[in-house]
Amino acid sequence: MSEQKLFSFRNSWFSTSVGTTVAIAIASALAGLIWLPLAQPDLKLAGIWDAICSAAGIPRAPVSASVQQPDFKTSNVVLTPDTIGRKDAVSIGRGATLAQRCAICHGPQGVSDANSPNLAGQFAEVTYKELHDFKTGARVNVVMSPFAANMSDQDMKDVAAYYAYLPRVPSSKADEKVPPPPIVVTGAPMRNIPPCGSCHGELDYKAGSPWLGGQSAVYIKAQLQAFAAGARRNDISQQMRNIARHMTAEEIDQVARYYEAQP
């Protein structure tokens, strides 16, 4: 069976198969890398070499078009898995010291009934990002903005680490029996409203989205209304405004009351 030599151009199987494959590869490469790109007027290619490079997928330098600059401050926090860094004991300890001045409104254990957010057990990225936004002016609040103004980046990370370390405490209005309204469970897909939990932690977590359980209903409602009206704009690329602007007043109410009652 093996008297023929396979890897030899005298074997017609070898020469035909290799020849055909190489011919198709070369023809398709010529067509795909040179002919087709040059046939596209939109590409404005500088020549054959440019055609080959662009069709091969070599990235081109960014084009300079005039960019419309914002007329308001946007958040410049970059949220990645490395944003906060290590939450070690030193960081938490420093945070605990720094957080003493937060206790008046946010409670000595990060929980209060003052309609200001409860911070105990809050995701560190959230506390850090909001402090940072208060500092840069992307978010404005008469009480918070002056506090944040004098904090260093490390201060904000430490405070965030400290509050993330504290255990979550149910609010005084906790009531497990409040049923979740449809807008929380399924959202409203065609209005571009996903389930709240797909970012806020119950189903999955998107960095920068706060844990909502046990937050004051007054506070949640005020923030949703501010997002809807465009009065609060530190959500990067409108991620929360896109949702809030399509919620009805009744839905905002239901969401606020539901989350206040959650642990």
Partner: peptide, 11 residues
């Protein structure tokens, strides 16, 4: 790149 997409489409 579009060129490689074309080659794959031929094969």
């Amino acid at each position: 790149g579009a060129g490689f997409k074309f080659m794959h489409s031929v094969f």
